[in-house]
């Protein structure tokens, strides 16, 4: 894969030179480093994600896996290295940050729905104010999305009035409302009661089947084996191993990976 500079009129940003790349990469990370004060969280992560690829990122807690996917829509700023999302480099350029945030949807562990807005308003907020859509268009699209995640009947309720699983599905709809090319999931089922995990995973499966590029940080190994094209194992801020699920689970190469898998599968 190569990068080159493409100058076209009125635009001087960097894009991936698609003609020279056999594969269709959408996110490129090169030597990404980050520190929290003196603590070196990310120690040079280099990887590439393909268009339409489903990647599960796993690792022990505190390994930096959440921090890593949060750098991709710049909720965290990386301090060294480069991240290029759909041909746009993440830098201090405000316009690039704004663009990338519209192309990358994110789902959080704690849902983070806006509690003062109804379900419908949560979903339409960004289309109306950022994309400047007409309110009626935004609402009809939002209702379609809510139907897709199966909670159209709760559209006029407030987040506190629905269950955790339903809230997380609303959060997915809210992220989809910006028509993102990439979806980031940061432990989407960790805060859920066990009986609600599947309703969220089902929505994610459906989304995967529709061809969305997905980066999922999760401990749901069953989901990983079933849906992922590739699994990345991160420990102490670096990628220890990455492989297709079959290889990853059945024939892990690294000791730490083996230990992690044996511990995780015990449960």
């Amino acid at each position: 894969m190569r990068l080159s500079r493409v100058h076209s009129e009125g635009s001087d940003e960097i894009v991936a030179d698609l003609e020279n790349t056999p594969d269709d990469s959408i996110i490129i990370c090169e030597e990404v480093h980050k520190w929290f004060d003196d603590f070196h969280v990310l120690r040079g992560i280099t990887t590439t994600f393909e268009r339409g690829e489903k990647v599960v990122i796993c690792g022990p807690s505190g390994s930096g896996k959440s921090t890593f996917i949060r750098t991709i829509n710049r909720l965290e700023t990386h301090q060294q290295g480069r991240i290029i999302v759909d041909g746009i480099e993440l830098s201090d350029d405000l316009r690039n940050i704004e663009r990338i945030r519209q192309e990358v949807g994110m789902v959080f562990q704690q849902f983070n729905l806006f509690p003062h807005l109804t379900v419908l308003q949560n979903v339409t907020l960004s289309p109306i104010w950022v994309k400047k859509m007409a309110k009626s268009d935004a609402e009809s699209e939002a209702l379609a999305l809510l139907e897709r995640v199966g909670i159209e009947e709760h559209a006029h309720k407030f987040p506190a009035q629905i269950s955790g699983g339903q809230q997380q599905r609303v959060a997915i709809a809210r992220a989809l409302a910006m028509q993102p090319k990439i979806m980031l999931f940061d432990e989407p089922t960790s805060a859920l009661d066990p009986e609600m995990i599947n309703e969220v995973l089902d929505v994610m499966r459906e989304l995967a089947a529709s061809g969305m590029t997905m980066l999922v940080v999760t401990h749901e190994m069953g989901f990983a084996r079933e849906v992922a094209d590739r699994i990345i194992f991160i420990d102490e801020g670096a990628i220890v191993e990455e492989a297709a699920p079959a290889i990853f689970f059945d024939n892990p190469q690294n000791e730490r990976t083996q230990l992690f898998i044996s511990q995780t599968l015990q449960h």
Binding site: M1, R2, L3, S4, R5, D12, E13, I14, I28, E30, T47, T48, R82, E89, S91, D92, D93, L94, R95, N96, I97
Partner: peptide
């Protein structure tokens, strides 16, 4: 995935867009 031949992209950002 081997060697990515990458050109420098430390592009000068216009000040009104630079965080």
């Amino acid at each position: 995935m081997e060697n990515n031949s990458t050109k420098s992209v430390s592009e000068k950002i216009p000040f009104w867009r630079d965080v």
